[in-house]
């Protein structure tokens, strides 16, 4: 397979005649991390759902596609706001959910792969536990492991860290930036600090449309207490507070 595709969305969306977002256009460059930042209710999640092939409830006039022209279906993994773990499956079974649902035989090397992935997210010793025996941060790490097991070139994140405490959130941001590097990531968030840490590209989505804001140079994740990160965070917040 060639490298991960860029993402492209242009158009307008309505749900039952109510406008969700007006005519807008956004690009998420191939193999890089793009944050889509904006206040609640501005239609960020709808953008993500359209790219994920969901959103049957949305009337969308426009185009949501991969930059290489091939269909997105089968090339996308999704990490939602809640961990969406199945309480009746243990951690290993949750991580391999995709394989189970597609009905391919679980191959032996997949078992090895599961161990590697669980090791990456630091959950090797929890492989046989049920989700209800884990903390919120651990559960979200299982969800990340499940996303990694899917091994898809495009990863869509819908505020996956918003319910975590500050420390778990920062740790998850570090871990995700490390493990999802090289994939096309579109990360919907309402947290300016998160966008300032993770975005190689930051798109500010407001009622008026989308503005691209240039983040400080350097690799991600940026340090949470580095002056340029804090400065950028302040700038993003200012743009949210004082549009125009």
């Amino acid at each position: 397979m060639s490298g991960p595709p860029a993402l492209h969305l242009a158009g307008r969306a309505t749900i039952e005649g109510r406008a969700i977002f007006g005519p807008l256009s956004l690009e998420a460059p191939a193999g890089e991390w793009t944050c889509l930042l904006g206040p609640s209710g501005v239609g960020k999640s709808t953008v993500l759902r359209l790219l994920a092939g969901l959103g049957d409830e949305v009337l969308f006039a426009g185009e949501a596609a991969a930059g290489d022209g091939a269909p997105l279906s089968g090339r996308v993994a999704l990490m939602a706001q809640t961990d969406l773990l199945m309480p009746w499956l243990d951690v290993t079974a949750n991580v391999t959910l995709g394989t189970r649902l597609r009905g391919r035989r679980a191959q032996r090397d997949r078992a090895l792969e599961v161990l590697e992935v669980l090791d990456c997210v630091g959950l090797s010793s929890h492989a046989a536990k049920r989700p209800n025996a884990l903390s919120g941060g651990q559960r979200q790490r299982v969800a990340l492991a499940r996303t990694l097991m899917e091994d898809r070139p495009v990863v869509l994140l819908d505020e996956p860290f918003s319910a975590l405490d500050a420390r778990s959130r920062a740790l998850m941001q570090d871990l995700s930036a490390e493990l999802l590097a090289g994939r096309t990531v579109l990360h919907v968030t309402h947290d300016t600090a998160e966008a300032a840490r993770l975005g190689q590209h930051v798109l500010l989505m407001m009622d008026g449309g989308i503005t691209s804001v240039t983040p400080p140079p350097g690799p991600i994740p940026r340090r949470y207490d580095a002056p340029e990160t804090l400065d950028f965070q302040g700038r993003l917040l200012r743009m949210l507070m004082e549009p125009g």
Binding site: A52, A80, L101
Partner: peptide, 17 residues
């Protein structure tokens, strides 16, 4: 729960499965 169904859809789940 709709979240589970959507996750399964993105994972290209087979209907019987």
């Amino acid at each position: 729960p709709p979240g589970w169904l959507e996750l399964a859809r993105v994972m290209n789940a087979a209907p019987g499965r």
